[in-house]
Design a protein around this nucleic acid. Sequence first.
RNA 1: GCGGAUGUGGCGAAAUUGGCAGACGCGUCGGACUUAGGAUCCGAUGGGAAACCGUGCAGGUUCGAGUCCUGUCAUCCGCACCA
Length: 809
Amino acid sequence: MDLRSIEKKWQQRWEKAKLHHYDKKSGKPKFYVLEMFSYPSGAKLHVGHWYNYGPADSYARFRRMQGYEVFQPMGFDAFGLPAENYAIKTGVHPKDSTEKNIATMEEQLRAMGAMFDWSAEIKTCEEDYYKWTQWMFLQLYKKGLAYRKEAPVNWCPSCNTVLANEQVTEGVCERCGTPVVRKNLTQWFFRITEYAEELLSGLDGLDWPEKTKNMQRNWIGKSTGCEIAFETESGESFRVYTTRCDTLFGVTYVVLAPEHPLARKLATPAQEEAVEAYIDYASRANEIERLSSTREKTGVFTGSYAIHPLTGKKIPIYLADYVLASYGTGAVMAVPAHDERDYAFATKYGLPIVKVIEKQGGETELPYTEDGIVRGSLQFDGLVGEEARDAIATHLSILGKGGKKVNYRLRDWLVSRQRYWGAPIPVIHCPHCGAVPVPEKDLPVRLPYDVEFRPDGKSPLAKHEGFMHTTCPVCGGAAERDPDTLDTFVCSSWYYLRYADSENEKEPFGREAVDRLLPVDTYVGGAEHACMHLLYARFFTKALRDMGYLDFDEPFRRLVHQGVILGPDGNRMSKSHGNVVSPDDYVNEYGSDAFRLYLMFGFSYTEGGPWNDDGIKAVARFLDRVEKTVLKVYSERAAKEEPFGAEEKALNYARNFAIQRVTKDMEAFSFNTAVARLMELVNAVCKYDGLPEKNVTLLQATVKDLILLLAPCAPHFSEELWEQIGGKGFLLEQEYPKEDPAALILDEKEYAVQINSKIVCKAMIPASYTNEEIEAFALALPEVKARLEGKTVKKCVVVPGRLVNLIVG
RNA sequence: GCGGAUGUGGCGAAAUUGGCAGACGCGUCGGACUUAGGAUCCGAUGGGAAACCGUGCAGGUUCGAGUCCUGUCAUCCGCACCA
């Protein structure tokens, strides 16, 4: 079969029949299968796209044949830095390169033959999409979930933009690897922390990989501790946050972050110069240096003292950048005896170390950071761990000096970007009225085309006078637009909603459409989005729910991550490694079905692995074999008398076993074993076909089921075979085979017979036997008899259908 | 440093969740058909001559462990001064 020519033929017929369009009137239960949309940074689809979309499409087809009204849309996450960086390098405008890339990728996606519903396609860089992205911003603003503040932010000097916390890895820009520096800037934030608790608790009910859920749990980082108020001698007050208030009597100094509001105020005249110098030093350190836990601790004494809230003792106040301004209260109580960091700092600066926790049943070695018995702490002596913390926290709250407090590591999401290729932030800055949101009727705020996007640390839009100059919607006076664009993750935080109603011009999505299709039933995409896209999308869903636009809590019911296909050398594919495998070459040579089938068969889907050429040849051979077998079987005529003996029973068993297993494996995204079962079925068919006497009716029925089972995995190929054997309609319209339980019941089963857990022989034992009968049967076997001469059987373990184990003394 | 995952033939991988380790496929070897075979079909294929030995390594629980427990090594991933 010439796979390439039949692909075109069937793609055209499917298209003409609108076979892949979601039909809301079908009356069948809906099933929303979604793959993460494409980012058109390169000009072509790579193996990773194929590995994501090919097998996932087979899953969607499988669901469709099972009787669901499947919705599987596709689109493009088209805004973003790569297109802009490419423009800076080559002078090609991001809009032009993006549109060109999208056109190529669309064509390739169509050639894949996936059942995408192209009528729902979206591109986030188009006005009719980003208009609603801006609308989302305005709703969040109205709800108090979007706000502007000056804060130390992550700045990538190479990308010339700020980055979200999530986009900084090990102190470097996630995208380009440049060390990130801290800068004080006024920026827009989304108040994702408002949802920290629900984002955490909601994970429990999700059918997601445990690993991904754990990454989100870690990222949200809930911690239960205690806030404690300290007064200074000069009458100022500040609070510290601790998870170990049971160590409160061991406090020998307190530390404020260098950015703490009181940092300068607390410097005594004698220390003023040193404090200034230290604040300056800390502000210049980049994130890598700052975050390294192995770096030697630095700090400075302010000259001021605080009063211990329970003992009334004088405690020196230090500044040190091992305390983070952005977590907790930006101040900590230092207990060198029971905290490694404080211990290191105290040792270096010669501060006292007071032991107040004793190890239970052992020598207490400092720093001792585990729970233990409280000592030297007045009425709290003798308490241990949690009970000590409870008692001290309660005591503090009675005194009005603090109490229990929950903290999260999650920070608000910084969404401003000083870049061109994104959705403009719909805000106008008026000298009289301040930051004013653009009225909804004036959306979209259009992204101008003629912009100088060469980076100089300022937003490219800031240099575009026509864009910047506007009037204030409140007072009508001259005003300027916000020159920043939104992080592209804002665009992708709600696209799965837009698909449901992509043509709607009046609203981002109609309530009825969303109620019908959402949430997404199965979402397939890479694991790298665990703490970014997947978290942001959950946040958007919850915020939109609270504004009354949605009626569900979680966007993605089930999540599956595909693995990564590596180069043949086992390294990640990259131009610099020279190990990039182009899907096009293989698709041209073997056809898209063979390529897809290899991706399904050659790897464990969630694992991925190195590419290898031999595998794809094997799959092509398998398809050849199927074709030959099917056509041969269908060229035969049924005889008058068709036998139905042991051989037929075996074939029918193989047929129904395959149906049962393939169904289960497809459901579980275990595509490699599903294809293996199909291969077994083909082997069984070939074996039976070689017999002199055949039941052609059974053989043809078996082969027909084979085509139906194969249809989701090799759609064009199967469709062609289906037509050739006289099948009616498209395969997607056929019912997926269901196994006949009766055919799976065997009269006898093969048992492994063991003596003292060692296999002696195998035996066919009737399925109807009781455990006693099985034992008797085993004992009567000659192999067993010979070995049991003169021994007594002490025990007999029977595992029904599998083995019998005789324990002898 | 903390957390998680993984470790099975020459290779990609399976294993009904504690029950015959290596399904299916690649590769290799042998055979058939052939002028020919890098096509196709059939057979063999964990190691070992065998008893036996085999799921990173060392222990343990169990009639029975790839699977459970303890320790350990290696690789990968995530977090990383979060008080």
